[in-house]
């Protein structure tokens, strides 16, 4: 029984990690290739969730809603890039932080204005809404397995694009030395725009996939943004591979920490205190992990800049 529970918790950690990966993948490329700090990345995750909620209500089907939401998230990302972010690439990091923070506030209010402050509901397609029984009494929601599969598929696709195509080669080159790539005659601005659009779409995809599990509400992207930054710092800025491994690491450490910390503390403290402290300690573990990684490898696990 305990072994099954531990396995189920590993599955939970994996699923959480893959969602983080979808968000962090775009962030790490934007940061790595363009040296641009985009705090508004979390908002794109929120926009993805709202778009899928709106289109699902409109079409009556989640699949159709998702199919419409992805291009819309891409367009929205490109729009932001052209209107706002493009003008910030040459400014210093503090200006970028200020401006993109402003975008967060603006968009959080904007979705509230359009859709209201109440959380929205997105229904899971009927075929995927149940739970499968792993062992006696232990059920696992099918939708979370779908998220795991989708996350792995996107990870594989990104790996192939970044490592096996010309575009991917340019992205990798841009991440290690953007000025040199530009000097060799590559239209770096266009490359930036593509990377930005894809990054925004991936964050939107993550938002769309969690929309049926989590409530779609203003400000939902603010919390995940911090975790996404932790992921890219641990993984090494600009590295997709680093983001993938760091995201899974964080997902597992966070979930298993919440599970094991109270159990282990019960050996030392009384049950009520153990339950309380255990769950309070668990969220700290990822930051301890980050500190440890930075101590031993200051530029992350897989740095893309040499």
């Amino acid at each position: 029984m305990t072994l099954t529970l531990a396995l189920v918790q590993i599955l939970n950690g994996l699923q959480f990690g893959l969602i983080l990966f979808l968000i962090a993948a775009g962030l790490t490329l934007v940061f790595g290739v363009m040296d641009f700090i985009n705090l508004a990345h979390g908002v794109q995750y929120m926009v993805g969730a709202y778009l899928v909620a709106a289109f699902t209500t409109m079409t009556g089907s989640f699949v159709a809603g998702l199919a419409l939401a992805l291009p819309a998230a891409l367009l929205f990302g490109l729009l932001l890039e052209v209107l706002i972010f493009r003008h910030l690439y040459d400014r210093d990091h503090l200006d970028q932080v200020l401006a993109t923070f402003g975008v967060i506030i603006f968009l959080n209010q904007a979705v509230k204005y359009v859709w209201g402050a109440a959380p929205l509901n997105v229904a899971i397609p009927d075929a995927l809404s149940g739970a499968i029984e792993i062992t006696d009494g232990m059920l696992y929601p099918v939708w979370r397995l779908v998220i795991i599969a989708a996350g792995l598929a996107v990870g594989l696709a990104l790996y192939l694009v970044v490592n096996k195509t010309k575009l991917g080669m340019l992205v990798r080159a841009g991440a290690s030395n953007a000025a040199m790539v530009s000097a060799l005659g590559v239209n770096i601005r266009l490359l930036f725009t593509i990377v930005f659009g894809v990054g925004a779409m991936l964050a939107g995809f993550a938002g769309a996939m969690v929309a049926p599990i989590l409530s779609v509400e203003p400000g939902m992207g603010d919390n995940v943004l911090i975790l996404a930054f932790v992921v890219i710092v641990i993984g090494g800025i600009g590295s997709i591979r680093g983001a993938f491994i760091a995201a899974l690491l964080i997902g597992l450490v966070d979930t298993l920490g919440r599970f094991f910390a109270p159990t282990l503390l019960k050996l030392l403290l009384d049950p009520s205190a153990a339950s309380q402290t255990g769950r309070a300690i668990a969220p700290m573990l990822i930051y301890i992990l980050m500190a440890a990684v930075l101590f031993f490898r200051p530029s992350g696990l897989f740095p893309s800049k040499q």
Binding site: T4, F16, G137
Partner: peptide, 23 residues
């Protein structure tokens, strides 16, 4: 179990797995 969840937690799956096993 007296489970005190950190404020702002949005994903309860780890907790729910535990409930399922404790019955």
């Amino acid at each position: 179990e007296e489970s005190f969840i950190p404020l702002g937690t949005l994903d309860f799956q780890a907790e729910l797995s535990k409930i399922a096993s404790m019955k």
